[in-house]
Write a protein that binds this DNA or RNA. Structure first.
Length: 293
DNA sequence: ACACAGGGTCAGC
DNA sequence: GCTGACCCTGTG
């Protein structure tokens, strides 16, 4: 692996376990879009980045080595050995083997805690394209304009202050619908520091989870997603309709509908790799339509 | 056309 | 612990 800068690109030769499609389309993030040339452009930490894989060369455009080390290295979870994780999961059974092969190159991004809280509140009983639409609308309406890339303007995710004090009409127009009260209240909780969601990182998973569940619009499933995608906790197992289906298909009787028990089953099975296992299974199930009637 | 479900959560029994 | 309502939109 060789890392170097060329103009405004950071290039990594001989990259392993990095497949942009699987990273950006596995359902963990909502601010990355595919360009016509197959690359992906998105916003994180107030910066615009374009990502393209050519063979085993990763090209990060619109950035520099300084930002790579400060932001993107951690954002893309570069220090984690996904080959080792995949190998461990794949040897458990044929389903995990298939799911890890299918999702090869998927990585769990380290995303901003508050952005993940709001995004996954929006995700409840919603479809992924609509979640992306709402998040894009709110960012454009309330977020700071951070620059232009390939002729398009980009906006940072709104601050807690902006989201907690905006006109109700903005939330209505964003189509977050019945979730608008949750978003305003959750944003105020962070803005007022009634709870500092960023500090939950320092708590054990179960305590952080208990805290998250006090936020309006945050239940068992959304809190697990926040822990996994926004707080770097991997001993969680978010159970949504797809994980439910894939678990019924592969591991447990269909009569077992108690989501709490399915979650405990997953954590018991996958331990400290539950979150990552869940993401391989979720992506595999959703792309293949496993269990859909 | 129109019912149904989409990365669930909450309030009211 | 269960059950229905919740906004809006794409899908069949």
């Amino acid at each position: 692996m060789k890392l170097y800068q060329e103009n405004n690109k950071v290039i990594i030769d001989k990259i392993k376990d990095f497949e942009p499609k699987h990273i950006f389309e596995c359902g963990q993030c909502f601010r990355w879009d595919k360009e016509e040339d197959g690359s992906y452009t998105g916003v994180a930490n107030g910066k615009i980045l374009n990502v393209k894989l050519e063979g085993d060369t990763l090209i990060l455009d619109n950035t520099n080595l300084d930002d790579y080390h400060k932001i993107w290295h951690n954002y893309f979870d570069m220090d984690r050995d996904y080959s080792a994780i995949k190998a461990e999961l794949a040897k458990m059974d044929e389903h995990l083997y298939n799911a890890t092969i299918f999702g090869q190159g998927m990585r769990i991004l380290n995303q901003d805690t508050f952005e993940i809280v709001i995004s996954f509140i929006i995700s409840a009983r919603n479809a992924i394209p609509m979640i992306k639409r709402s998040v894009a609308f709110l960012s454009k309406a309330l977020g700071e304009e951070i620059g232009e890339y390939r002729g398009k303007k980009y906006y940072a995710f709104p601050t807690p202050k902006a989201l907690s004090s905006c006109d109700e009409q903005v939330l209505i127009d964003s189509k977050v619908a019945f979730r608008k009260g949750y978003i305003r209240d959750a944003s105020y909780i962070q803005h007022s520091l009634q709870m500092d969601m960023y500090k939950l990182r320092n708590l054990p998973t179960d305590m952080a989870r208990k805290e998250l569940m006090t936020i309006p619009g945050v239940g068992p499933k959304v809190s697990d997603c926040i822990l996994l995608f926004g707080l770097s906790k991997y001993d969680v197992f978010p159970v949504d309709v797809w994980v439910q289906r894939v678990m019924h298909e592969f591991y447990i009787e269909k009569e077992m509908k108690d989501l709490k028990k399915i979650r405990e089953f997953g954590i018991d099975m996958f331990k400290d790799k539950s979150g990552i296992a869940q993401q391989y299974l979720f992506y595999y199930a959703r792309e293949k339509g496993i269990g859909r009637k």
